[in-house]
C-alpha cells in the first residue's frame, strides 16, 4: 500500500491536547473529532487539509494523555499517515490499535518541508519525497505489531485469538 499526500509540518512535543483539545472529548464520534483535529496547534488545519495529506513532526509526537481520540481524530480527518522523529509511547500504541499508519524517521522529519509531496510504502517503511526527489527509511515495525496490523487492528486480533480458543 502506498500512502501519498501533501505534507503539513509541526514541531516537537505536539501533545494530545493540541491534537484534540479536551473541550471536544464529550463525544467519541470520529467525524466530530475530525472537525477539531490539530486545532490548538493550527486552528485552520481541519479546514485547509485535504484527504490523503500527511503530518510530519519532530520528537515525542502525541505526548500527554492516553486519549485514543487523538489518533482517531487524525485518521477520521483523512490524514493518510504521520511521520515523526519519535512518538510518545501511548500514542504510538493507540495509533496501531486503531489502524492509523505512523512512521518513525528522524531523517524524514528533518528533511521534509511543509508543502512537499510525499509517498510512503507502508509495508517497507520507505518514505519518498517526490518534491525533493529524496528517499528516507523509517524504523521497521517489530513482527509482533505487524501481526496486529495484519489482523486489522487490535480488536480483530483479539477476536481471532478468542475464536481460536473456542475451537480448542
Amino acid at each position: 500500500m502506498t500512502l501519498r499526500g501533501k505534507v503539513w509540518k509541526f514541531g516537537a512535543d505536539v501533545d494530545t491536547d493540541a491534537i484534540i483539545p479536551a473541550r471536544y472529548l464529550n463525544t467519541s464520534e470520529p467525524a466530530e473529532l475530525a472537525k477539531h483535529c490539530m486545532e490548538d496547534a493550527d486552528p485552520e488545519f481541519p479546514t485547509k487539509m485535504q484527504p490523503g495529506d500527511i503530518i510530519v513532526a519532530g520528537k515525542n509526537f502525541g505526548c500527554g494523555s492516553s486519549r485514543e481520540h487523538a489518533p482517531i481524530a487524525i485518521k477520521a480527518a483523512g490524514v493518510s499517515c504521520v511521520i515523526a522523529k519519535s512518538y510518545a509511547r501511548i500514542f504510538y500504541r493507540n495509533a496501531f490499535n486503531i489502524g492509523l499508519p505512523i512512521f518513525e524517521c528522524s531523517e524524514a522529519a528533518v528533511a521534509i518541508e511543509e508543502g512537499d509531496e510525499v509517498a510512503v510504502d507502508a509495508a517497507q517503511g520507505i518514505v519518498k519525497n517526490l518534491t525533493k526527489n529524496e528517499t528516507y527509511q523509517a524504523t521497521s515495525v517489530p513482527e509482533f505489531m505487524q501481526q496486529i496490523i495484519d489482523a486489522g487492528g487490535l480488536i480483530d486480533y483479539v477476536s481471532k485469538r478468542l475464536q481460536g480458543q473456542n475451537k480448542e
Binding site: E68, I90, L154
Partner: peptide, 17 residues
C-alpha cells in the same frame, strides 16, 4: 496508561502485551 482499545482487549482477556 494505555488507550481505550488496549483497555477493551484487557477487559476481555485479563492480559496485555
Amino acid at each position: 496508561g494505555v488507550g481505550s482499545t488496549d483497555l477493551a482487549a484487557a477487559m476481555a482477556l485479563g492480559e496485555t502485551w
